[in-house]
């Protein structure tokens, strides 16, 4: 039977173990945002702050997802983890909640409030009138992307016994390469007989180069359009598959 009390206890354990490190990271993040805002608004610097902050949250999501099961890296901490009285679902959900919702919420809120505060202070000091607008659409898209990334590294943390971060990265790169290769082959196979294919593909050297600039000129076959939809569904399902696999791996793992 799922117990919220035990779930909370598990969450508290993860929180307390990471509190010091997270505090330090948030302090650094605060200083970076202040620097970026003053540079952007008041010293006319060249800024790409949103992309940078998005990248920062993504990196922290990766780190937290990988570290949330760091107890499994060593026999002694693994024993401690599995012997603590709580069900696997309580332990799993506490780890999931911390590495996804809490991590993203804490960093997003920090970014929001520090931006708000630093711009208010900057306006007061300089007499200028800048405003901070929350990019809701970007946040929504960013959240889904972060959940995708989180699920991959969360699964990697449970599957790999040593160096889960490196091994997950390597697996993603390898899978990405294989998927790209297969996609390129499929596209080439579909487009082989299409009009205008010779303009797109360098058939002389018989390679897979496709000139991106010209691809919009081509009428994609209906089947290829469907494939795109199928791929969208697959990408949407990946986080759920990773989370479910991670749960069963955690349940069956031996120390």
């Amino acid at each position: 039977m799922f117990s919220f009390k035990r779930f909370f206890e598990q969450f508290k354990m993860i929180w307390m173990q990471n509190a010091q490190k997270q505090g330090l990271v948030l302090a650094v993040l605060t200083l970076v945002i202040i620097y970026i805002n003053f540079n952007r608004y008041y010293f006319d610097g060249n800024s790409s702050d949103l992309a940078f902050l998005g990248m920062f949250v993504a990196v922290m999501t990766i780190i937290n997802s990988t570290n949330v099961f760091s107890a499994l890296l060593h026999t002694s901490s693994g024993i401690h983890y599995y012997m603590t009285p709580a069900s696997i679902s309580e332990k799993y959900l506490a780890a999931w909640f911390y590495s996804s919702i809490i991590t993203i919420a804490v960093y997003t809120l920090t970014i929001y409030f520090v931006n708000l505060a630093s711009i208010s202070v900057g306006n007061a000091i300089t007499g200028q009138e800048h405003s901070f607008v929350i990019p809701i659409e970007t946040l929504k898209e960013g959240f889904l992307d972060l959940m995708f990334v989180q699920s991959l590294f969360f699964l990697g943390a449970v599957v790999f016994k040593k160096n889960p971060l490196g091994k997950t990265l390597l697996t993603i790169i390898c899978c990405g390469f294989i998927i790209s290769l297969i996609s390129a082959l499929i596209i080439r196979w579909y487009l082989m007989g299409e009009e205008g294919f010779s303009n797109l593909s360098d058939t002389t050297n018989y390679n897979l180069t496709i000139h991106i600039d010209n691809i919009n000129d081509l009428n994609l076959p209906e089947n290829l359009g469907n494939l795109k939809e199928v791929l969208k569904v697959i990408v949407f399902c990946i986080p759920f598959v990773c989370w479910i696999t991670a749960y069963f791996r955690l349940k069956k793992r031996e120390i």
Binding site: S77, M83, A86
Partner: peptide, 15 residues
């Protein structure tokens, strides 16, 4: 959980 509440394992290498 019922089992884990009644059994404590202290390994040689503690964490």
């Amino acid at each position: 959980v019922k089992m884990l509440e009644e059994i404590y394992f202290l390994p040689e290498e503690i964490w």
